[in-house]
Structures are given as structure tokens and as C-alpha cells.
Design a protein around this nucleic acid. Sequence first.
DNA 1: GCTGTATGAATGAAAG
DNA 2: CTTTCATTCATACAGC
Lengths: 181, 181
Amino acid sequence: MEEGMSGFCFRSASVGGSSGSTAGTKCGRWNPTTEQVKLLTELFRSGLRTPSTDQIQKISTQLSFYGKIESKNVFYWFQNHKARERQKRRKVSFDEKETMVRKENTKVCSTQNFAEVNQVSEPERVMETLQLFPLNSFGEAAETEKLRVHGNDQCRGNTMFSYTMGEQMEHPPLDLRLSFA
Amino acid sequence: MEEGMSGFCFRSASVGGSSGSTAGTKCGRWNPTTEQVKLLTELFRSGLRTPSTDQIQKISTQLSFYGKIESKNVFYWFQNHKARERQKRRKVSFDEKETMVRKENTKVCSTQNFAEVNQVSEPERVMETLQLFPLNSFGEAAETEKLRVHGNDQCRGNTMFSYTMGEQMEHPPLDLRLSFA
DNA sequence: GCTGTATGAATGAAAG
DNA sequence: CTTTCATTCATACAGC
């Protein structure tokens, strides 16, 4: 698929054409390396969907070995990948429903869409150890998904959610010029 | 960036989406005008972080002059802006720390930052009155305000992007396992 | 060369 | 307040 991916921000400014950003050294957008994409994809396939802070940090650090990368790139990558996977699946689902596939599905049509249903082309490979690279440290991958310790203790009364929607204004505008003395 | 932002909601047809009973000429999502954004940003910069209900109402009313807007939009805007400012800060922080390879080799192009973070050129004008508009409704809003004085650096950093990791990694060990202390 | 598609980035909206 | 979902914008790249 995305095999022709070259390095990261090199050529850039090639399409320039119109505005010729003349960015030159300043690539406006992260362009993942093949290795980076591959690893990210593997992680995703291993079941990782929304990496935590620590996870993002580590991943970013690791991937920086293959090319310039920032934490936000990893963050966005997973966000997008997940969203698009879902979107695609949703679309397919809709499509199927739309075309009303003949025959019945031997499966129960319950909540079979909430897991990690991948497309039909993966021989399955449920993560178990997540050994992406020639790791050699002690084992125990532990895919630890959500492990957030939400210690929300803020019990501060907050008077919000009182918007009276539907109450649209129609009175003369006042003055919005902030006038901080 | 591009300032050619279209005004506000303009898609009248093909809204589709939730074409159901409560159909209407409403677009699914608020699309702020540049003026609106600018003003909101100014308010934010002035120190306003969590406007109260009445403040939201006023702001919303004022901004409605520049385009369609609802109270909840203002509410969400501030919430998102605040949260993202924080996130960005944390990410950048980590990023800097990460790219702090700091070799004797000096920088070449420096500024490898992406967009954003460009509005930090204000000498901290900690407002003190924040007289948005000549508020003069009812005494209801005169409850001594609840202006969060800037600088509330509560301790947090537990879940989200709190890149406070120690010096655990310094080389690309080719291992991406997540190791949760 | 322009146009379509894939995807990085941004943000409104909402759930938790 | 924190985290996630959905939609959209912008851009890189491929195909025509």
C-alpha cells in the first residue's frame, strides 16, 4: 500500500507550484518513514488504539530513531488511524446494510461490532507479546490498555450548563471592545 | 495561515447527516468567524479561562453580531482552548526535552516548531478587572465574579500528557514495550 | 499539468 | 477537568 513512502520531509516544496512555500527546511508536516509507519501499524494491530501519555512518549522516542518525529505526531497518528478504521468499517457496514446482503448471517448480530473487528484480510494475530523489534529484554510485554488512575477529586461546585438555548438575542449590540483599563 | 476562512455556516443543502424529524437549516457544527475567533482569543489572552454562565451569555450575544453562534459554542470554545493550550504546552515541553540532543553542533535552522505557539508575545498582562462589556444586568452577576487569577498552577499531571518521565531512556534501544513503573 | 486519494493536523462537540 | 469522537481542512503523492 504505502510502500513508496520515502523518507520524511525532504523533497517537500516540490508541489509548491502555486504558492511555492519556499519552506525549504521547514516542513510543515510530518512525513512518516516507512519504518515508522510499519511500527505504528504493528502497534495498532497489536491492539493499541489510544496510547497513554507514557506510551506516546516511549513510542515517539523509539520512532525518533528512524526519523524526526514528535509526540504529537504519534498522538495524531493513532487518533486518525482509529477514526478512519472505524469510519471505513462504518461505511462498509452501511454499505452492506444498504445492499442488504442476501442470505442470513450465520452469526448473531449482536454486539459484534465493538471489538477490534479488522477488515477481512488479516489472518488475525491477536497481540500477546507485542514483539515488534528484536527486543531482548526480559519478557512481559503487557499490553496494558487503559490503566488510568483517574483521581478526580475536584468537588467544586460549578454552575454551568445553564445555557438557555433557543433564547436568541435580538437586541442592540453592546460593545465588545474589551476595555481593560 | 489561511485567513480565507469562509464565514460561518453556509452549507444549506446536503446537510443530510441527521436528516430526520428535527430537520432544519442548521448546520451540524458551528464554524466560527475570524472575528469571533479573534475576539475569543483576546478574551482568553486577557486571562479569561472559565467564563461563568452570565459571561458566556454576554460573550455569545456580542459575538452573534459577527455570525451565528450559541452559548454552548462559547462554552466549548473556552473549554477546548484551555485544555489544548495545556496539552500543547506539555507536548512541546516533552518535545524540547527530547530533541535536546544538544551537541556541540549548534542549531542549523532552529525553529522546528510547528505552527502555533506564536501568540506568546504578551508580557503577561494579568488583567485585573476584565471589564468585558459594561455589564449591568442584574445583581445576579455581581457576585464578586469568579475570575480565576492567572497562575493557578495546581498540581496535576497524572493522566494526560505529563511528560515527566525520568531519564529512563537515552538511546534507541529498539524496544517499544510499555513499561509502567 | 491538474485531479483524486491518502493522511497529517486542527478543532468543535461531547462523554466520562 | 480530562479524554475521546467526528468532521473538516491542508497537504503529500500518485495516476491520468
